[in-house]
Design a binder for these strands. Sequence first.
DNA 1: CTTGATTTTTACAACGTTATAGAAAACATT
DNA 2: AATGTTTTCTATAACGTTGTAAAAATCAAG
Lengths: 334, 334
Amino acid sequence: MAVTMNDVARAAGVSLKTVSNVLNDYEFIRPATKQRVQDAIAELGYEANLTARSLRSGKTSMLGLVLSDLSAPYYAELASKLMKAASRHGYRVMVEQSDAEPSVELGALQGTFRQLTDGLLFTPLVVDADAIAARAGKKPLVMLGEHIMDPRFDLVTMKNEEAAAALTRHLLAAGRRRIAVIGAGPDESAGSAGLRLNGYRKALEDAGVPFDAALVAPAEWRRDTGAAAVAGLLETGVEFDAVFGLNDVLALGAMHELLIRGVKVPQDVAVAGFDDIDEARFAAPSLTAVSPGMDEIAERSIGLLLDRIAGRETSGQGVHVEAGFELKVRESAP
Amino acid sequence: MAVTMNDVARAAGVSLKTVSNVLNDYEFIRPATKQRVQDAIAELGYEANLTARSLRSGKTSMLGLVLSDLSAPYYAELASKLMKAASRHGYRVMVEQSDAEPSVELGALQGTFRQLTDGLLFTPLVVDADAIAARAGKKPLVMLGEHIMDPRFDLVTMKNEEAAAALTRHLLAAGRRRIAVIGAGPDESAGSAGLRLNGYRKALEDAGVPFDAALVAPAEWRRDTGAAAVAGLLETGVEFDAVFGLNDVLALGAMHELLIRGVKVPQDVAVAGFDDIDEARFAAPSLTAVSPGMDEIAERSIGLLLDRIAGRETSGQGVHVEAGFELKVRESAP
DNA sequence: CTTGATTTTTACAACGTTATAGAAAACATT
DNA sequence: AATGTTTTCTATAACGTTGTAAAAATCAAG
């Protein structure tokens, strides 16, 4: 079987606890003793048993990450960065895909998944703050995204409204006046969709351009739905000279549909997105998009969660972090 | 604190072990007793402690997945599917990103990661079979991909050679004679790159079209490198009327570069890829690509790994599984 | 009823670690 | 050398579950 601390203790001629002390950097150990233990560890190839350590200490050195679908590029890139950031601090990340199922989302707050993990990064999509609060337990929990803005919870988010406004201003400055928005209902006010739509409306207002609900097309945030939404706009005969996809895949789907139908991008219609996934740079034409500072989001969310776990952050209120953004102007909307 | 089996036992008026027996579907329990225990579990909201269970039983109900980078679309989609497949069998998947670092790849075979997991899905990229064999230990290990083809290991892969040949035949049938290949050196013979290149050569040979090493451009499998490789070809003045990207992101990067430079796709140059990631359908023009049966790969790899874990598959030799493929003809190479 | 076989339940140890509390050793001070 | 103080080490008990082996209860048959 595997080498245990007991084997190491025997080999080094010390007690079990002394080995444990060496491993945990206990202060009062004679250098000679420490050396003997470390030699024994090296010689036997001992590796600590995380399961046993967890059982005894209650810590797992794992973080949980709940998101709807890992195959969505934005989430894939985010998960990758979060894992790397966590790894720098000695933590692993376990991913749970909710598929936007309420039962799965809520389930991830409790039960095995929660148990296996010292803290949770949670991207709620379909459950509300009260439901979360009722089930959250007392392990640290940091929200990602914009579905929940509640003072009870820690939250790491991006400047959705400002960034959407900046992007809209950019389109307006380029002379576009009929900017279609894909990915929200005209009255949407909550979540990422609502915030980004607000930014769009505010920029229009500031520029004195009237808001037209006919330009706002609801769609789930996927490529195919983005394509379908723009097809719908074209078929209903609504005039537009720009498309703002509320995320990149929507914009890319829309752009695809436009190109198929012979609409020139950006000459006839400019297209812009939100997220700046890797693909945005390499689309044809390359996609103008808001880059929401994913590195910063990853770094700060891991930082905040680990601060909570270690008890370094003790605010009773939720801490709210907003990462900066950058507008990446590319060919699709110069 | 959390409710333990002991609390349940006390509430139901039975012994600890009886609760355990109920949870583990032990055969000989009086229905009345079982009911009392289950009522107590429901009433107290008991949830088994996985850590304790793992420590005692040696099983974790987790699988490991080692891949280079989760943000690569192919891996993101594969990971997502693998997680869903595993979840159907009551397992979770922990992902480890190797970044193609040999030390990380080998490290994932041992140490904590291995310990936390009942079996490993391993996509080796930079380490060889002997190094793996030396470190693999005895927990089940299933290889994904083509870097290692060794009878010692279980392997789930795709029909790289046949699929690449089929794609090449398709390009030849459309009249293309100068088909550039991006993502391999001209002498590459191992790994996915080598196999796909072999398929390409075989199809050329069967068609009596001479192989020209000048048409083969090495490149790491990313968008930017794909773009750079095609730029290199254009600048050296090599003539070509088609590009076969050895994976989709290479092809998409190449297509982007071609379009930027005013080369018409598919009129001047046809472009085709391999993987059929979601983006392939929505690129402009949409990308002709080999679909390597990712669902089947996910299903079969989880199946094989779980068979090994449960001892249902006991072949001493490695079991080799090859998923089927399909050619998706789209606009970029009709 | 008694006996023997079968079903049902239980006590106790064990998995490999960390926490507690105290014993032993080393050092400093008189 | 005796005393007190600090450093170093250790024995033992947990953490919450499953495995082993045996005890207790039930049933069938005489």
